[in-house]
Design a binder for these strands. Structure first.
Lengths: 208, 208
DNA sequence: TAAGCGACATGACAAATGTCATTTTTATCC
DNA sequence: GGATAAAAATGACATTTGTCATGTCGCTTA
């Protein structure tokens, strides 16, 4: 099995190489030190599997994975991370990585590599426990992009709890008319029609 | 590595045993044919890892996993499934399985076993692609529990898309009044007040 | 100081919504 | 066929909701 290692730390590169080549069935055919380097080397080297760090200068592991999968949709990429990088797991899944492993679990790294080579997908043990939470976090929505004020945000959240204008007004010490006006304002900013669409938008784009 | 195999089909048991023992580092120390049998054998045999089918008479793989983890919270259990059993992945994660693998991927099974033994978590490749969808689906909600008819379900889904009564009526070839009545009916069945609460309920309890 | 601005409020209005009692339609079974 | 029950529709009604024009208050600043 031919494998490509991508890491900006030469020491890590070597350590991984030693670990993987210990049993003789894995051959490290390429060492890259950046995502960009990996992408350009990939087309030429055609490794069976890519083992890449996530955090790197000059194109990180996620972007590299994405590019590599454009070149070869069947490519198998395992991402390595030093600790539990919450932020990245979501994107790693989305981008199509076949593994997401902690460097500290290097003992079983070569088995993980073989499993991925065989078509499985491998996650570092602790990561999976947090998976349900992590997947349910919106990573992209920014209130500011829509010029929505903090008070309006609060109202949106209450609408998404199912409260009526009157209830929202009481809870926020505002007049009911004010609440209506603010909702009206948010609706036009988000290009929605009514509070139900707002609640749907909230769960589809913001909270989930 | 001592391993326990749980499957109600003796043929599968033997196949798995052969595959796993091929390389010599894995030793199958127990063959069970039901979840119940596995649980009682586990305490005595103390295997390093359990490989269990999901579908079985007399306690399925999920329940067995749960019981085994009560006995030993550190236990590593890999669940096997014949095809993509959507329903079960969610529960498998929740119950604490360290692997969820398709029987058809048996080629890399022993590597997967070693990876899990080393602390990783392994999923069959195709499963992961669907993970985001699957995790976001409530497994517990049953329309029937609330006597909600299929047509009412459809309306609820459209409400949760943000459609108005008129739009729903057009899309379903019903009168607008009928739609109102049906929504009204659902609201009382679910003890909600208005369509916005219904949408919230949908995203909080059903779809998410 | 007065003009300007933003946050909040008010009142009026049309439209959408939820409820209910009462048909009409449809399918089913004898 | 006719009795029956479920599904769908109707009409009337009270509320809620969204919009808009307008008004008040406090603050900045030219």
């Amino acid at each position: 099995m031919k494998i490509m290692i991508v890491d900006d730390d030469p020491l890590v590169q070597e350590s991984l190489k030693i670990i993987l080549e210990k049993d003789g069935d894995i051959e490290v055919v390429s060492l890259c030190s950046s995502g960009r380097e990996a992408v350009s080397a990939f087309a030429e080297v055609k490794p069976d599997l890519v083992l890449s760090d996530i955090r790197m200068e000059d194109m990180d592991g996620l972007a590299a994975t994405s590019e590599i999968l454009k070149i070869d949709p069947q490519a198998k990429v395992i991402l390595l991370t030093t600790f539990l990088d919450d932020e990245y797991i979501n994107q790693a899944l989305k981008v199509g990585a076949k593994g997401y492993i902690l460097k500290q679990d290097c003992a079983s790294l070569s088995d993980a590599v073989r499993a991925v080579y065989g078509g499985q997908t491998v996650f570092g043990g602790k990561i999976v426990e947090r998976l349900p939470d992590l997947l349910n976090r919106s990573e992209s929505f920014r209130w500011e992009d829509y010029d929505i004020t903090p008070k309006e945000q609060e109202i949106v959240e209450l609408v998404a709890e199912g409260l009526s204008n009157k209830e929202i007004a009481q809870k926020m010490f505002l007049g009911e008319g004010t609440v209506r006006n603010m909702i009206s304002s948010v609706l036009s900013k988000l290009d929605l029609r009514d509070r139900t669409q707002l609640a749907c938008f909230y769960y589809q784009r913001i909270k989930i």
